[in-house]
Each structure stands twice: as C-alpha cells, then as structure tokens.
Design a protein around this nucleic acid. Structure first.
Length: 458
RNA sequence: UCCGGCGUAGCUCAGAGGUAGAGCAGGUGCCUGUUAAGCACCGGGUCGCAGGUUCGAAUCCUGCCGCCGGAGCCA
C-alpha cells in the first residue's frame, strides 16, 4: 500500500483525491454521452471520460470530452466556470482522464446536439506525450498503436456498428427459433481440405484451430433442427488483401429439412435485417465515417439471384474475361457486384470448384446446389453456403474423389447413417459485412485487434 | 508466395549530386463560439541498415531489413 502510493507520487500523474470523486457522485448524476436527452437540458450532471481535444479562444475555452459512448464539447467560460477549473485548462493534456461537471445545454452548433457548460472539473490522470496526434497518421503507425487508436472517432464508430451487427445477428436467429450452437475452436480435422490450418500441439497430438464450424453445425442441425454457430475462425492462408484476416468471425446457420431455395431466402432476410438495424441505430456513427447511406437504404429484398451460367453471360456483356468452369476471381466478382445496386446471390457453381459436401444439382449434376452472396460496392463475397449432400454413399464417393481422409470424418459420415435428411446452411463473414456497411478500405479496421499475415501485435 | 511502390524530426510529408525543410504534435504568449480553430515566437535529425560510385551522397548503384498496395486462395 505504502509502496504503491509512493510509486504513484513518483509518477506524479494522479491529481485529485478519491474523496472528491465520491463527493461528486453524491451530488450530481453521472450520465453517459449517448444517454443525453432533452429531459436533461438545464440539469447539472457529470461526465466521466478523457480529454479528446481542446481549443481556446482566450476567455472561452472548449474541451472535447469522450467517455466511450460518444463525444461532447464542454465549454468553459470565465465567470461561469470555477476559477480553479478555468485556470487548469492549460495543464489539461490530450487523453488526460477528467470528470467534468456542469449544466446540459442544447446547441445547434454542437455535432451531437448537446453541450456541457462546465462548472468544475476533476483531473483524474494527467497524460503526457500521448503519441496519436490530431493530424493524419499512416496505417503502419496507427496499427502499431491500435490499443490507443481505438479511442479515436473512426474506430469508435466502426466498433459501435460492429456491436449493432452482432446484436442484430443474434436477434435475427433467436427470434426465428434457432439454437445457439457453439462449435469447438480446437478441432482434430480440417473442414475444407484445401485451405491451410493453424497447427496446435495438443499434449503431443496434432490439433488445428477451426476454420469453420460448419461440420459441427450439421450435427447440431440434425440434433436440434435449426442452429447457428457464431464464433472466431482461423485460416493460415498466406493471403494479403483488404478482404482477409487470419482470425475472423463467422456466423453459420444450419437447418435440417432446408433446401437451397430456403437458405437463399433466409440469407436475404438476414442481410436486410443487419443493414436496417445499423441504419436504425447508428446514423451518428455512419456520419462520423462519412458513409453515404443511400446505397444501404436500397438493401431491401428481393436481391437478384442468378445462376453461375447467367453470371457468365453478364461477364460477356460487360466484356470481362473469365475461364469457363473456373471459380470467379476478384475482377469477375467486382464486375458482377457493380452490375447490381444490391447484394447479388450467385447459385449453381461448377462442382469441381466447390467443396466436397455440397449436393450436386439433380438436374445438372456438374453443378452444385450452392450460393454465394456478393456485397455491393466491390466488397466481395460475404456469404457462402449450400445444400449439403445427405446421402452416405454419394458423400463417401465425393470424399474419395477429392482424396479426403475418411477416418477423421467418420463422425461426419455417421450423420448420413442415422436419420439423414436434406439440410442446408451458410456462413456469413462478420468483418467483410462490417467493412461493406462502414465502407472501410480494409477488414483490419473492423475488428479490435486484427490478426494479419505479417502483423499480429498488439 | 509472386508483382509493384515507399522508408527524411514524435507524426504526415517536401527536398532527386553541393552539406536539412514545412505542417501537426510539444513549449511560451495573444484571442469570448472554436469544432483537425487561428496568429506570433522557441526547442526538435546517425535522412531504415550495410557496402559501393564520386572531390562531394538523403539524392546514383548493390544487398539486406521493415512497411504499404495488388494478385492467387477464400468469408
């Protein structure tokens, strides 16, 4: 205790006593910035936060205070503000922790609509040499300082929207009778054999970080009818683009007795619900990001749904080159998504470019009952899904064709031996969806601490 | 992994053979409505590292390191 106190004194950064903070707590309500409303106008409150910016015009001094829920301008005026607090303006450095106390005022000039007329303030912690400045910074510097960058306006807005998106996803599935089904993150086998997995030493055994919860979700669907897996996934692909992270979040619904048509419909409902939730709750955040909301307002069902072969005809029309029978690359995806002003769903890809568990189209067995949803504005694939092969023999045959080891997947094949039914599901990439909605230039800004090919600190 | 670009003040950048600059941040003042506020003044540098060319290299060449952008794969 004594030592601790001495240390704090040495640092000389904690300014005011805990007693004063307690006294204020007994005298005035503590209000979060995003809770300010007209009923509080004229009332005295306190805001506990940090100094984000300050400006002075001599006898009138402005503090931009952030408290984690928003930003507000606190105004200090000679004669109104206590002389001690008014004097203290000069020692308030950026990112110092402060508690400001005063009267809520409505003001047309304020970005949030409200201002605080400061009566008094407590300097809780005086920050020195805060590294992030007010001018532009390069992405390298900002990512190195991600732990501090999160405090600033754009990360604040994106994280708030991420929260809304996650909440909307849970509301969507919970209100439709889906059971939340947590798939394991440590898994003994791969899901899609081709992609690379992170290897883990599991007491001498080989294990992997999950790259998809889908196979487990299928077990869940046959147990509980409708489930969704929502969690982090890991891919050790050496990809280095604005659409890739090594660790990202995916929501994967899986539904027994559902066909491709059912999930094509469900995916549209989900994406519409997510976007409309953000438009309902985050107009302030979209404004901070200078995101044009018009394209988002258009995200209403029905979305265009086209088959792979029709997509090829659109590419012909646009003069975009492609290799028939191949999966689409970035140029093709971008061209098709720009052709429409809503998310577009492409179904029935050639069998050989898709995963082994996808069910071939009974009418054209060279194509599979699958769907991809491409986000507008060039954000690429946000959903991939399919109707699954439910026949034991056909699934086994496909696995043998693709040289997939049978033993680790015996449990998965088992699902086709006991009460197998048609079932379908899809995966929605959370970060790509957020990147599109926030019109971010890279998925790395849509997750608090991104994990990328050559960058994984802090 | 491949292709391309960039490393100069704490940060963002200018300088492209002749010996180091600006804005912001920091410091000191001024200003009663600023909103990346403004104005004046002050301090601040192994020009990524190593080697080479040259009378002379931040500048040209080679190698290495770091970062960024794009491709493939995918969500």
């Amino acid at each position: 205790m004594g030592l601790e106190g001495a240390e704090l004194n040495l640092r000389g950064k904690f300014w005011e006593s805990e007693e004063l903070i307690k006294k204020w707590d007994n005298e005035v309500p503590w209000v979060r910035i995003d809770e300010l409303n007209d009923d509080l106008v004229g009332k005295e409150i306190q805001i506990k936060g940090w100094l984000f910016n300050k400006r002075s015009s001599g006898k009138i001094r402005f503090l931009i205070v952030r408290d984690g829920s928003g930003f507000i301008q606190a105004v200090m005026r000679e004669g109104y503000t206590s002389p001690e607090a008014f004097q203290r303006y000069s020692e308030l450095s950026l990112e110092s922790a402060i508690i400001v106390r005063g009267e809520v005022r409505k003001d047309q000039r304020a970005p949030g609509g409200y201002e605080l007329s400061v009566k008094d303030l407590i300097l809780v912690f005086k920050t020195e040499n805060y590294p992030i400045g007010k001018k532009e910074h390069g992405i390298d510097f900002l990512l190195d300082h991600r732990h501090l960058w999160l405090r600033h306006r754009k990360p604040f807005a994106v994280m708030r929207i991420r929260h809304t998106v996650v909440k909307a996803i849970r509301e969507f599935f919970d209100s439709r009778g889906f059971l939340l089904f947590d798939a394991p993150i440590l898994t003994p086998s791969a899901c899609e054999g081709t992609t690379t997995l992170f290897k883990i030493d599991y007491f001498g055994d080989e294990m992997f970080l999950s790259q998809s919860g889908q196979l487990y979700a299928e077990a869940g669907a046959l147990a509980y009818g409708k489930v969704y897996v929502f969690g982090p996934t890991f891919r050790a692909e050496r990809s280095k683009t604005r659409r890739h992270l090594m660790e990202f979040w995916m929501v994967e619904p899986e539904i027994a007795y559902a066909t491709l048509e059912d999930i094509v419909e469900l995916s549209q409902e989900l994406v519409e619900y997510i976007v409309q939730s953000v438009l309902d709750k985050n107009l302030r955040e979209l404004e901070i990001l200078q995101r044009d909301v018009k394209p988002l307002e258009k995200v209403k069902r029905p979305f265009p749904v086209i088959k792979y072969k029709e997509a090829l005809r659109i590419l012909d029309k646009l003069g975009v080159e492609y290799v028939p029978g191949d999966d689409f690359g970035t140029p093709q995806e971008t061209a098709i998504s720009n052709y429409f002003d809503k998310p577009v769903i492409i179904t029935h890809y050639p069998k050989n470019v898709k995963a082994f568990y996808m069910k071939p189209d009974p009418e054209e067995p060279e194509y599979v009952l699958c769907m991809d949803m491409l986000a507008p504005e060039g954000y690429g694939e946000i959903i991939g899904g399919s109707q699954r092969e439910e026949d034991y023999e056909k699934l086994l045959q496909r696995m043998l064709e693709e040289n997939i080891p049978i033993e680790p997947y015996q449990w998965y094949l088992d699902l086709r031996k006991y009460g197998s039914v048609p079932h379908s599901g899809f995966g929605l990439g959370l970060e790509r969806t957020i990147a599109w909605i926030t019109k971010s230039d890279h998925v790395r800004v849509t997750i608090p601490f991104p994990r990328m090919l050559y960058r994984y600190k802090p």
